[in-house]
Amino acid sequence: MIERLLEIQKLNLASKIAKDNIFNSTLPIRVKVLAKKGGMKYLLQVGARMLETRSQRELEVGAKYFAMMKGGKAGNIILSSLIPEPKVSKSPLSLDFLESKELLSKNTFKEIAEFASEQLAHSKNKEEFLQWAFVLSGLQKGVLSLNIQEEEKKHYTQIKKRKNSLEFYALFSHLGSISGLIAPGTLDLSVMYPSVAKFLSENLEGMKWKGEVRIKVSNGEIEPLFFLQEQLLNLSI
């Protein structure tokens, strides 16, 4: 099951597509709202670029969104289907594919929690302390939060092991949020946009998946498996 999850991570080929055709991508693009101007116009950051466009809905300055983006006939940029990016807590665990496979295949969550406890005790600053505290709090609920690195990109991932299945949440820069359940012979995925469902369907053959695959488009936002609540942390493991 771990191998299947890592193969799904590798399907994030959208970054290559977006670089070639950033303003007419068939896949969602992550945008950050830098400033609001008059007449519902906003200054946005898309990758390393900044652009001005109009939105039919009120956007929060400083927030990040996923959106479909294309060029209009008048040369303007049109945004549609905006969905706020979940405000996930940072995880200090960052591993490449091979390291992720080794960690998740050989280590139990209890062993990972023991390692996180040691890192928490030796935190150099408040930010590092809070990040390891988040990891420990998630592990108390059976959820591991980490970043899986692919080349220069990091994909935020949460994993919850069940008896005969693996539940996960992943956040990609050009696919948005994806949640799923991997079980023997079945793969269930929930995505944010129809174009993402189509993209995954067309590329699942590369995973050599022999079981049943079900992909549905969520009607709303896809939430992470675990949020850090604004309350006193109980760090006993």
Rank of each mutant, 00 (worst) to 15 (best):
G180R: 01
S179E: 11
K216P: 02
K73F: 13
K198T: 12
F97S: 11
V213K: 05
E7Y: 08
E152R: 05
S55G: 03
L139A: 10
P184L: 05
F199V: 04
R57N: 14
I148W: 01
I83E: 03
V33S: 01
I8V: 04
F97C: 10
G71T: 15
P184F: 03
T108V: 08
K153Y: 11
N24S: 01
L171V: 04
Q56C: 00
S165R: 01
K73Q: 13
F97V: 14
S15T: 11
Q119G: 06
K70P: 01
L187I: 04
F227W: 07
L166Q: 06
E52W: 06
P184S: 02
K90P: 07
S190Q: 12
I77M: 12
M192K: 00
F66S: 02
I83D: 00
G47M: 05
L34D: 10
E52K: 14
L95K: 02
K163I: 14
T108D: 09
Y193L: 04
E99P: 05
S100F: 07
N125M: 11
L189C: 06
Q231T: 13
L175G: 07
G142T: 08
G142Q: 07
R30G: 09
K153E: 15
F199D: 02
A63Y: 04
E151G: 06
P84S: 00
Y42N: 08
L181F: 04
V61E: 13
M207D: 11
A18V: 12
N164G: 08
V33R: 01
T108R: 04
R30Q: 15
G62T: 12
S145N: 08
N24I: 06
I2P: 09
L51A: 01
V213R: 00
L103W: 03
V217R: 03
L120T: 07
E202C: 00
R30S: 15
N107E: 13
N147V: 06
R4F: 02
I22T: 10
F115C: 07
M192R: 02
S177C: 09
P86C: 08
L95H: 07
N24D: 06
L59S: 09
F115K: 12
V217D: 08
I22H: 03
T108L: 02
I222E: 02
S165T: 05
L144T: 04
T53Q: 07
Q45N: 05
K106C: 10
F226C: 12
L130Y: 13
L181M: 04
K16I: 15
E205Y: 00
Q9N: 08
T26P: 05
S145P: 13
G72Y: 00
P84I: 11
N76P: 08
K216R: 13
S218D: 13
E7C: 10
F168K: 03
S25T: 10
L204D: 06
Q45T: 02
M1Y: 09
S89C: 11
K163D: 14
A18K: 09
K16T: 13
L43I: 12
K216S: 15
L204P: 00
P86K: 01
L11H: 01
K153Q: 14
V217K: 05
L5R: 03
L144I: 01
M207W: 00
K161M: 06
F168Y: 02
F97M: 13
T157D: 03
F226M: 10
F168M: 01
K163L: 10
W209C: 04
L103P: 08
K10V: 07
M1K: 11
K216V: 15
A113N: 13
N107G: 05
L187V: 06
T53S: 14
L136P: 10
